[in-house]
Design a protein around this nucleic acid. Structure first.
Lengths: 244, 244
DNA sequence: CGGCAGTTTGATGTTACTCAATTTAAGTGG
DNA sequence: CCACTTAAATTGAGTAACATCAAACTGCCG
């Protein structure tokens, strides 16, 4: 099976219950039983990469539209002086960016956070499928809408809310997305982010993120260790982080 | 002429050289010489409103897609405790939001900043035009891309940059947009924003905005009075506010 | 002239950053 | 399994940036 990574991908994307699964599913069709390597469609290709690998660069152009198939990555904007703003954490099934469907030049950079699998689809093929299939069309529209909604919330969090609220909001935003891709027991979420990532996402320093986590731990709201986030007091976390 | 406000609108939108003018232009066609009130298309309607008027509410649904025709407005997200994040200042020709073309429920609120004229198009009519005309299609796509680009920049500004940098960035962002709709002489831009608006847009208090403006004035970078922003030292302002 | 909205200024408080040292965790090779 | 190395997290002390509160000032309009 490992010989045919695209099969694994197709299965992943078709079955994963996240909001853009419809996009991948519609694109690939149902996972065929008898698919073999030589039947892999020419408009799709697959690559793996190690944690930390640069997956896309701003201003770089590509004929492909990329989807994260496995692992975690993040989309970010880099400033000249080295600071960066993480715009979104990408989970399996996520497009690098919905905009990339229409625009061949990346507006942002993307980096692997864990070991990842990435699939690229020829943009022309997607456009063809798009005109042919209403399902693909509405999947694209939905992912654009979700993107706008998320961005709005993040902007509001960054502009108006305290460090604690921003971090709580980030966790609450990620939890359902993680849960859609993993079986969650005892409120324990797989969580590979370093505090540096959290800091770059919510506009704080890693040192301050550490302090806030200490407060949250001391109040028995959560525990975080060994790549696992355990939520102890969800209602209180929501009281802090929810937007409305 | 005032009897037929939609004519004034058509003329405004077709001629204004901003990036979504193609959208309005494609939708309305060239401004006809002989158009009269009874020829006004049934899928379009026009309203005026005073400064401060609420033009759209989050979670409210509408069958229309709205475009600002004259004056200034802003799109924002309101928090329960009264704080608000201004997401974008709307200038003549701007859609309230590109997302509204696809989604009938508003994700955000919109308020008039000056006296405004607003035009509403039936969403169904836009969709029909969209399938018929590649021009309308690409105009929509372009406004979505521009939206994503702007939002990314704003996120980065809010998350990573100082008060001074954020304000300079806001001004630099607005200047070309204002210039596209007004004749600018001597670097003097019409500028109806109150410091409260700037504060809500860049995530500061009005008091602090005032202090920053004082610094900028003292360094002879700009002057701001009577609704006019005068830029005295553009290169220096760009050094402070430009993202790259 | 008085009232109102917006701006400015000062004094003070709070939040978050910086710098630096220490501890913990995670690998790595013997 | 254990020493060694390295990255990440934690903690403390001092500082800078921004917020808060309150008062004074400005321009505008009735």
């Amino acid at each position: 099976m490992a010989k045919y990574p695209e099969i694994q991908f197709a299965s992943l994307c078709v079955t994963c219950p996240n909001r853009i699964s419809g996009f991948c599913g519609a694109l690939l069709g149902p996972p065929p039983e008898d698919r073999t390597a030589d039947q892999k469609p020419g408009w799709q290709n697959f690559v793996s990469a190690r944690a930390g690998k640069q997956l896309a660069d701003r201003n770089q152009a590509s004929g492909d539209v990329f989807v994260l198939c496995s692992g975690w990555a993040f989309r970010y904007f880099q400033l000249a002086d080295g600071r960066r703003q993480i715009l979104k954490f990408l989970l399996p099934g996520d497009l690098f960016s919905p905009v990339a469907i229409f625009e061949k030049t990346f507006l942002f950079s993307v980096k692997a956070l864990t070991e990842v699998g990435v699939s690229g689809f020829a943009r022309s093929a997607i456009h063809a499928k798009c005109t042919a299939s209403p399902d693909v069309q509405s999947a694209i529209v939905n992912s654009c809408i979700a993107e706008a909604r998320d961005t709005t919330e993040l902007l509001t969090a960054l502009g108006q809310r305290s460090a604690e609220e921003r971090i709580a909001h980030l966790l609450l935003h990620l939890m359902p997305r993680i849960a859609a891709r993993n079986v969650i027991r005892d409120q324990r979420y797989p969580f590979p982010l370093r505090q540096q990532h959290i800091a770059d996402a919510v506009g704080l320093t890693p040192v301050h993120v550490s302090r806030i986590f200490r407060l949250l731990r001391d109040r028995h709201l959560l525990e975080l260790s060994e790549g696992v986030l355990k939520i102890l007091d969800l209602p209180e976390l929501e009281r802090i982080g929810a937007l409305k």
